[in-house]
């Protein structure tokens, strides 16, 4: 009972961190604070993965999201900063209609979750997640795994091509 309530407390803390960070991303006026809240949210999600016995995915989450995507976002924010904090609200879709839309989505989905009959089966306990994921990636999912390497290669080349500075970019237009 003690362990159960401890894991409950861990869940509520991590869920709060996740949602609070996501709220900071959505509602913060300053884009730098948004990026830092995004990091908090990703850390909370990684903690939730550990609670769900997905330790390998939690490690990947920390390495790729917290170490990669957030740093990339911060770089982009810094490189475009003095424009970034001028005007962040959208005129075509206002705050109130957006809040109404997401409230409606939340209400409908929560009602559907409550009404649905979920299948339930426990994870096998005779293996660890890293072992199982490694086996699956090189067994059942070997084709998507190889395609993913092609995708990453093309992304690498594409980013280099896109971010190459054009010789006459400073003058505005390229002919």
């Amino acid at each position: 009972m003690e362990g159960l309530s401890l894991s409950n407390a861990a869940f509520y803390f991590l869920a709060g961190l996740t949602l609070f960070g996501a709220g900071g991303v959505a509602f913060s006026r300053n884009i730098v604070y948004s990026a830092l809240s995004l990091m908090a949210s990703f850390m909370g999600v990684a903690g939730l993965y550990i609670l769900l016995r997905a330790d390998f995915v939690a490690g990947v989450q920390v390495l790729l999201y917290v170490g990669g995507v957030v740093v990339l976002t911060l770089f982009a924010v810094m490189l475009t900063q003095h424009i970034a904090d001028v005007q962040i609200s959208n005129r075509s879709v206002g705050t109130l209609p957006s809040l109404a839309i997401i409230a409606a989505v939340f209400a409908v989905m929560a009602k559907a979750y409550r009404a649905a009959e979920w299948r339930s089966a426990a994870l096998p306990t005779d293996t660890t997640s890293t072992y199982a994921i490694g086996n699956a990636l090189l067994g059942t999912y070997v084709l998507p795994f190889e395609v993913a390497s092609l995708v990453l290669l093309s992304v690498l080349v594409g980013v280099v091509v896109l971010s190459r500075r054009e010789p006459d970019a400073e003058s505005g237009r390229t002919e």
């Binding site: 959505a26 949210s41 959208n90 957006s98 939340f106």
Partner: peptide
Amino acid sequence: VGLGLFCLGFYCVLTRRNAI
């Protein structure tokens, strides 16, 4: 929790004019 994350992300996409 996933639904809350989705809704906040959706709100972000709807209201921001900043591409980042």
